[in-house]
């Protein structure tokens, strides 16, 4: 699995976005930061809580100049039907059908041939600033991802459990 400080591998893959199938190129994403989250499958009973969670939180991410991109090994048609099933998703769902992108990020479960539940936050230079992976049966926290984005964007030292409005660490010290 890639780690903070690694250069994020790029991609040019089909995706479902805005009610249709199109392509998404990594270098076309203009936002300051990117939240790239891998999930195992469309049409699942665990993933929708995350997919819709990121959808609901998208205005807050947008405020932080952050794009959200979801990735699974399903095909773009299934992504489209899945996003319709969930009532519309406001960010692109990439179709990483051969699992190449997940493998490049080191989050492909080779036995099951699906992506693990992993989240990467990429900074302006498209360097990995944060990453986390969890058990296939445990959904991740959208609010925690947003908290980390805000902390990273502050550019300051943020102590444990830092929240916007909390004090930062001293300017002359590094953790």
């Amino acid at each position: 699995m890639l780690k903070p400080g690694d250069v994020a591998p790029d991609w040019d893959l089909p995706c479902a976005f805005d009610g249709r199938i199109s392509r998404l190129r990594f270098d076309r994403i203009r936002s300051d930061m990117v939240v790239l989250f891998f999930y195992p499958h469309d049409f699942s009973f665990i993933c929708p809580t995350e997919v819709t969670g990121f959808h609901r939180a998208q205005p807050a991410f947008r405020q932080e100049q952050t794009s959200i991109v979801g990735v699974s090994v399903d095909d773009p048609e299934l992504h489209l039907r899945w996003s319709q099933e969930l009532g519309g998703i406001s960010y692109p769902l990439i179709a990483d059908q051969d699992g190449r992108l997940a493998r490049q990020y080191g989050v492909l479960d080779e036995r099951e041939k699906v992506a693990m539940r992993a989240t990467f936050i990429l900074d302006q230079r498209r360097i990995i600033a944060y990453c986390v992976a969890s058990s296939i049966n445990v959904g991740r926290s959208v609010s925690e991802t947003l908290r980390v984005v805000r902390a990273l964007r502050s550019g300051r030292l943020c102590p444990a459990d830092w929240q916007p409005g909390d004090e930062f660490g001293p300017l002359d010290q590094k953790f």
Binding site: H41, D42, F43, S44, F45, D74, L78, R81
Partner: peptide, 9 residues
């Protein structure tokens, strides 16, 4: 299919 399984469940 995954989609059909989802709908059945």
């Amino acid at each position: 299919s995954r989609e059909a399984s989802y709908r059945v469940v």
